[in-house]
Amino acid sequence: NKFNKEQQWATYEILNLPNLNEEQRKAFIDSLKDDPSQSANLLAEAKKLNDAQA
């Protein structure tokens, strides 16, 4: 299913963002699990935070 693929991709991407700390990473991944339909939005937020902390 589409959300499952998006969720897996977003999880992979978030795990590989270098500037997030473990707590932030875990929070994003927990949110992905809670609502896979928000995968794209959550990934965008994670990338923004990652860039802000660069």
Results as ranks from 00 to 15, higher is better:
residue 44 A to S: 11
residue 32 L to P: 00
residue 12 Y to T: 05
residue 50 N to F: 01
residue 31 S to W: 11
residue 7 Q to S: 06
residue 27 A to P: 02
residue 35 D to P: 01
residue 9 W to D: 06
residue 6 E to P: 03
residue 20 L to S: 00
residue 15 L to D: 05
residue 37 S to P: 05
residue 36 P to K: 03
residue 35 D to K: 08
residue 2 K to D: 15
residue 24 Q to G: 01
residue 38 Q to H: 06
residue 11 T to V: 09
residue 53 Q to P: 04
residue 49 L to H: 03
residue 20 L to E: 00
residue 18 P to A: 08
residue 31 S to K: 14
residue 8 Q to R: 09
residue 3 F to M: 14
residue 30 D to A: 13
residue 51 D to E: 12
residue 32 L to I: 13
residue 16 N to R: 13
residue 22 E to Y: 13
residue 36 P to A: 07
residue 2 K to A: 15
residue 47 K to F: 11
residue 11 T to R: 08
residue 50 N to K: 01
residue 12 Y to K: 05
residue 25 R to W: 02
residue 21 N to K: 08
residue 46 A to V: 02
residue 23 E to S: 11
residue 49 L to W: 06
residue 4 N to P: 14
residue 39 S to P: 03
residue 38 Q to E: 07
residue 30 D to W: 11
residue 19 N to R: 04
residue 28 F to V: 02
residue 33 K to Y: 14
residue 21 N to F: 10
residue 2 K to N: 15
residue 32 L to M: 06
residue 53 Q to R: 04
residue 39 S to D: 02
residue 53 Q to E: 04
residue 42 L to G: 01
residue 27 A to W: 15
residue 11 T to H: 14
residue 35 D to S: 10
residue 10 A to K: 02
residue 25 R to E: 01
residue 31 S to Y: 07
residue 9 W to A: 14
residue 6 E to M: 08
residue 12 Y to D: 08
residue 19 N to D: 06
residue 51 D to W: 14
residue 25 R to F: 03
residue 24 Q to Y: 02
residue 50 N to V: 01
residue 7 Q to V: 15
residue 33 K to E: 13
residue 42 L to D: 01
residue 49 L to F: 05
residue 43 L to Q: 03
residue 34 D to Y: 11
residue 33 K to S: 12
residue 8 Q to N: 03
residue 13 E to T: 13
residue 10 A to H: 06
residue 21 N to Y: 12
residue 18 P to L: 04
residue 26 K to P: 00
residue 51 D to Y: 11
residue 29 I to M: 10
residue 19 N to T: 03
residue 19 N to F: 11
residue 27 A to N: 10
residue 21 N to V: 05
residue 42 L to E: 02
residue 40 A to P: 05
residue 41 N to L: 07
residue 39 S to W: 15
residue 23 E to Y: 14
residue 44 A to L: 14
residue 33 K to T: 13
residue 15 L to S: 11
residue 21 N to L: 11
residue 18 P to G: 06
residue 52 A to G: 06
residue 22 E to M: 11
residue 4 N to I: 08
residue 12 Y to A: 07
residue 5 K to L: 03
residue 10 A to W: 05
residue 1 N to F: 01
residue 3 F to L: 15
residue 45 E to Y: 13
residue 43 L to T: 04
residue 40 A to L: 14
residue 25 R to D: 00
residue 48 K to H: 07
residue 46 A to E: 00
residue 17 L to N: 01
residue 22 E to Q: 13
residue 32 L to F: 03
residue 48 K to T: 09
residue 54 A to P: 07
residue 44 A to Y: 11
residue 2 K to F: 11
residue 41 N to S: 13
residue 30 D to F: 14
residue 4 N to Q: 11
residue 23 E to F: 14
residue 52 A to Y: 09
residue 30 D to E: 11
residue 33 K to V: 15
residue 3 F to Q: 15
residue 14 I to D: 01
residue 29 I to S: 03
residue 14 I to H: 01
residue 36 P to I: 04
residue 34 D to K: 10
residue 1 N to H: 10
residue 3 F to Y: 09
residue 42 L to H: 03
residue 51 D to P: 01
residue 1 N to S: 02
residue 4 N to S: 07
residue 43 L to H: 03
residue 54 A to S: 11
residue 43 L to E: 02
residue 21 N to R: 12
residue 31 S to L: 10
residue 35 D to I: 05
residue 36 P to S: 04
residue 37 S to N: 08
residue 13 E to L: 13
residue 30 D to Y: 12
residue 11 T to A: 15
residue 28 F to G: 00
residue 31 S to Q: 13
residue 26 K to H: 09
residue 20 L to V: 02
residue 32 L to K: 00
residue 9 W to S: 05
residue 54 A to N: 10
residue 16 N to G: 08
residue 3 F to D: 15
residue 43 L to N: 01
residue 45 E to T: 11
residue 3 F to I: 15
residue 16 N to V: 05
residue 48 K to M: 12
residue 33 K to Q: 07
residue 10 A to P: 01
residue 29 I to A: 03
residue 12 Y to N: 06
residue 44 A to F: 12
residue 22 E to T: 10
residue 47 K to L: 09
residue 39 S to T: 08
residue 21 N to T: 13
residue 45 E to N: 08
residue 34 D to F: 12
residue 47 K to E: 04
residue 43 L to V: 13
residue 2 K to L: 08
residue 53 Q to T: 06
residue 1 N to L: 04
residue 12 Y to S: 08
residue 9 W to P: 02
residue 51 D to N: 10
residue 43 L to D: 00
residue 14 I to L: 05
residue 31 S to M: 12
residue 24 Q to N: 02
residue 52 A to W: 12
residue 39 S to I: 15
residue 14 I to Y: 01
residue 53 Q to S: 06
residue 12 Y to G: 06
residue 18 P to V: 07
residue 5 K to Y: 05
